[in-house]
Every structure is written in structure tokens, then in C-alpha cells.
Simulated scan of single mutants.
Amino acid sequence: MKISTLFFGELEVIDEEIVTFTQGVPGFEELTQFTLVQPEDSAPFSYIQSVQEGDLSFVVTDPFLFFKDYDISLPEALQAELKIEQPEDVLVWTVVTVNHDFSKITLNLLAPIIWNVKTKMAKQIILHDSEYNTKHEIVLNADSDEASEPTQVEG
């Protein structure tokens, strides 16, 4: 199927590339079908693009690239809901926020997206009783895609 998107123009999406968010995405619960877009020039960032609403995509990244000690555990109920059988079936994404002049980039470590690559099911969860918050700042090294030491931003 072809979808018309705000940032990527027209995209060809095959059924095998569609991931179903079991309860939609918080704030967009009615939107359940997404696809991952990974432009080469945007690494280490990717996009989760809505298949149903071409104007909606989220910038995401692998949090472990920036926070080596990021530690989450998945409740058994979530593992059952997403039909997770093996740890290697799971990708963890965090939503990226960039301010208007691109001088500050933060990751939402409090609400990661858990993505089962085998079943093509995903869910954004909230880590209750966690030290993580929605704005953990990262700084990219200007000479590469490598991140420098991250800092946490309160608020």
C-alpha cells in the first residue's frame, strides 16, 4: 500500500512492515498501525510513521546507544499481551524530542516503546516507580553520530 506522509512524501509500505500498537499510542489511541522508517542520513534516529495518518510520525532511537545503564523489566502481563517469547524478539525505542533550534535533544526514558519484532506488536508503556523521566538530555558529538555523556533534565 502507498501512504502519503508529511516528512517522507509517498511511502510504499508492505503488510509485513506494519506494526500494531495494541492500544494505540498515548494521545493517539485511535491510531494503531505504524511502520518504521530509517533514513540513512538520520542515524542513530529513526521514525515511527503512522500508516493511518500521514501527518503523524515520531522520532525514536535506541536508548541503549546513549544510556548504557538504562534498565527496564517487562511485566509478565505485557510479555503475554505482546506475545514476547525471547529477549531477542524485543526492540526498545524511546521517543526523541528536539527543540525548535535543534540545540537540545531529549529522550523519554520513562515511557519506552516495546516492540516485538516477531509478532509485529508494540506498546508504549510507562515505567512506574522509576527514576527515569520524560526528558533525559543527550548531546551528539559534532564530528560523528556518537553521543557524549548524557545528562538528565528535570521537568
Rank of each mutant, 00 (worst) to 15 (best):
Glu85Trp: 02
Thr32Gln: 13
Asn141Glu: 09
Glu149Ala: 04
Leu91Pro: 09
Val51Cys: 01
Leu74His: 10
Glu149His: 10
Gln79Tyr: 08
Thr134Tyr: 07
Ile48Met: 13
Asn116Thr: 02
Val60Ser: 00
Trp115Ile: 01
Lys120Cys: 12
Pro63Thr: 03
Asp143Gln: 10
Thr61Asn: 00
Ala147Glu: 12
Lys118Cys: 00
Trp93Lys: 11
Val90Cys: 09
Ser103Lys: 14
Glu88His: 07
Val59Pro: 08
Leu74Pro: 11
Thr151Ile: 08
Leu91Asp: 04
Lys120Glu: 04
Ile18Arg: 11
Glu17Pro: 01
Ser130His: 06
Asp69Lys: 03
Leu140Pro: 00
Asp89Trp: 02
Phe45Arg: 06
Lys123Arg: 12
Phe102Met: 13
His100Ile: 15
Val19Thr: 15
Ser144Cys: 07
Gln33Glu: 07
Glu17Thr: 06
Ser73Glu: 14
Asp101Lys: 12
Trp115Asp: 08
Gln124Ala: 10
Val25Asn: 07
His128Ser: 14
Asp145Met: 14
Leu56Gln: 06
Asp71Leu: 09
Ser144Gly: 10
Glu40Asn: 08
Val51Ile: 08
Val95Ala: 04
Val95Ile: 15
Trp93Ala: 10
Asn99Glu: 14
Thr119Gly: 00
Ile18Tyr: 01
Phe28Gln: 08
Val90Asn: 04
Asp129Met: 07
Asp143Phe: 13
Ser50His: 03
Pro150Lys: 11
Phe45Lys: 10
Glu146Thr: 15
Met121Ser: 11
Ala77Phe: 13
Thr94Glu: 06
Asn99Val: 06
Phe45Val: 00
Gln79Arg: 12
Lys118Trp: 01
His100Pro: 07
Leu107Thr: 02
Ala142His: 07
Gln79Trp: 06
Phe28Glu: 10
Gly24His: 07
Phe58Trp: 01
Val95Met: 12
Glu146Val: 10
Gln86Tyr: 13
Val37Gly: 04
Lys104Leu: 12
Pro44Arg: 05
Glu149Leu: 10
Asn141Cys: 06
Trp93Ile: 01
Ser42Lys: 03
Asp15Trp: 11
Leu107Ile: 05
Glu88Gly: 06
Val95Ser: 00
